[in-house]
């Protein structure tokens, strides 16, 4: 097969993966852009979501319920990080690293001590599977993923427009102001981190089903992929989408899809997969630097 054809045939898979990681990137958007903190918990909580979902499905729990439970597990991870950085006053980055490291052990426990656990789409009713990614019809994971993205963007749009949602945004934007207006900023940080990690674990649960396995290392560098999606979305759609919060979130999801499509492209052009993480890091570093060099206001805040 020539590279062009193999790229085209890999495109649906890239889109599906991009959509799954798009949900994850929305979680990163909440912690990085709305709360204005760098939450590294996500590297652990995405694997927690995948591990929990997979083991629950294998234990006979319906897939949808397993996904919900996985999201709850992710929220607990966010709660732990939140309490570490509010009640214990540990810097947010370190709090996230601590939780992430602890989750590595927790995830191994969840997966019965194994680093890798499979789930077969033949034996269990999964919500989505890589197998049908080129199929026409509602079995195609892209349909479900697009629908889920739309629902989650709509829900997040509503939530961040409510009184509580606005308090969380104000907390991330200016903590002194929020506190002076009677907002319990500690609680807002905890709530925001719970939402972010719930969403990340949710995406991990979908990812595990999609690829048919969970791996204790599946979250390595997840934060960077999430940031890449956020930044690609902002760079490409920034101007056109900036005025509306729902569109900004859509840009993040599209950013993740673009990331995976471009990745697929360079892979078919013969790039060594081992170099991926290096390239991703460089891209994110460059895009975080650009606004700083332009002297623009605080896009690169961390």
């Amino acid at each position: 097969m020539n590279p062009f054809n193999s790229f085209i045939s890999a495109l649906p898979g890239a889109c599906a993966q991009g959509l799954i990681w798009g949900l994850m990137a929305l979680g990163v958007y909440i912690s990085f852009r709305i709360l204005n903190t760098s939450d590294l918990t996500v590297d652990g909580s995405i694997a927690t979501g995948g591990a929990a979902c997979l083991m629950l499905i294998r234990a006979g729990v319906p897939a949808a319920a397993a996904v919900a439970a996985s999201a709850a597990a992710g929220m607990i991870a966010g709660l732990v990080t939140g309490l570490l950085c509010t009640k214990c006053r540990i810097p947010a980055i370190l709090s996230g690293i601590l939780t992430q490291l602890a989750l590595y052990s927790v995830n191994l426990r969840i997966m019965a001590g194994k680093a890798n656990q499979p789930v077969s789409v033949d034996k269990f009713r999964l919500l989505l599977s890589q197998r049908y990614v080129r199929a026409a019809g509602f079995d195609n994971p892209i349909v479900l993923l697009a629908l889920l993205s739309a629902v989650i963007i709509a829900a997040a749009y509503y939530f961040f427009g409510t009184e509580i949602g606005c308090s969380i945004r104000a907390t991330g934007n200016n903590r002194v102001m929020a506190s002076a207006q009677g907002v319990n900023t500690d609680r807002c940080v905890v709530m925001g981190l719970m939402l972010a990690n719930g969403l990340v674990a949710f995406s991990g649960a979908l990812l595990a089903q999609y690829q048919g396995f969970a791996d204790v290392n599946m979250g390595r560098g997840a934060i960077v992929i999430g940031l890449a999606a956020v930044i690609i979305g902002e760079v490409i759609f920034g101007k056109a989408f900036s005025f509306n919060f729902a569109l900004r979130m859509l840009a993040v999801v599209l950013g993740a899809v673009i990331y995976y499509v471009v990745l697929q492209l360079v892979l078919t052009l013969g790039l060594n997969t081992n170099d991926l993480k290096l390239i991703t890091s460089v891209i994110v570093a460059v895009f975080l630097t650009v606004p700083h060099l332009k002297g623009g206001r605080g896009n690169a805040r961390a």
Binding site: T162, E163, C166, S167, A178, Q181, G182
Partner: peptide, 14 residues
């Protein structure tokens, strides 16, 4: 946000 200083904030539109 300021108008709600001191009152309970919920899931009502802001």
């Amino acid at each position: 946000l300021a108008a709600r200083r001191g009152s309970k904030r919920g899931l009502k539109w802001s």
